[in-house]
Amino acid sequence: MASSYWDSTQRKFWTFTKQQLNLERKKLEESERNLVSMFPLPDRRLLSIYFYHQLSKMARPLGIRQQALATAQVYIRRFYTKVEIRRTNPALVLATALYLACKMEECPQHIRMILAEARHCWDVDTSFNDISKIGECEFTLISEMNSQLIVHHPYRSLAELQSQFQLIQEENALAWSIINDHYLTDLPLLHSPHQIAITAIVLAVVLKPTQGNLQPVQAAGVANALQTLGNARNGAAQGAQNRVQKLVDWLAESSVDMEAVVECTQELISLYEIWESYTDKTCKDQIAKFVKARGVDK
């Protein structure tokens, strides 16, 4: 990994332990107790899925690439550890995060294009109609993030490690999509990009994707993978494939924190589990409620 991550603001200011993160969020909710009880919201992961869908809808017509989308997701997650979501208009925050992320990832989009796409994918109730809203929200976003805008992604580590592990094309694609999925969880605030990339590689190898069979990852599959991994680690890998064993040996010899890999995997399992209960509508409605009630878009 580029040496820069270790001294980065991401590591110093935006990587938390689970306890720290929970504490921050609790503080935030307690400061807005009324709002929180008045407007219940779906599980954070479900909201993240909804946000991702909305971001993709904006990004697709503009040809915005995945890394900018990922950066926008990280900005949104960071922002909502500092500002209670019910005090904001998520439509505006999402559009602004995407606008800002595109500039940071060197694929800038005109603010008017972002506004136009944002208006396409949100209802009148939750939308906004002026570029100055995005411009102003940009100030808020940057200020809450203390201008710490450079985000290190696991994609780079994946690219660096794929040759070392001799990943086949399908495995690489699967690892890539697992990395995409991890932005729907708190993992970007909890672990280094390197750690995430290793988890994605381990899962990709154990899950054995075959050509034409690149289905969405399922919770059960990942849980099995974890089992396989556990067996291999305990040396009880009778019948475990050579590749997995090799990988496990490599992990054992390197300084990779296996507990962290297991932790990341569990986080992903619970994501895939809860994903099955996801509906667009619930998220949409519940967001619309507090946005309308509070008139935050006006």
């Binding site: 606008y99 800002l100 500039k103 940071m104 800038p108 603010i111 570029i131 100055s132 809203k133 995005i134 411009g135 102003e136 940009e138 100030f139 940057i142 201008s147 710490q148 805008l149 450079i150």
Partner: peptide
């Protein structure tokens, strides 16, 4: 507010 220029964003970051 009209949006911050990309060069200013780069420099800040």
């Amino acid at each position: 507010y009209t949006g911050i220029s990309q060069s200013a964003i780069r420099e800040m970051a």
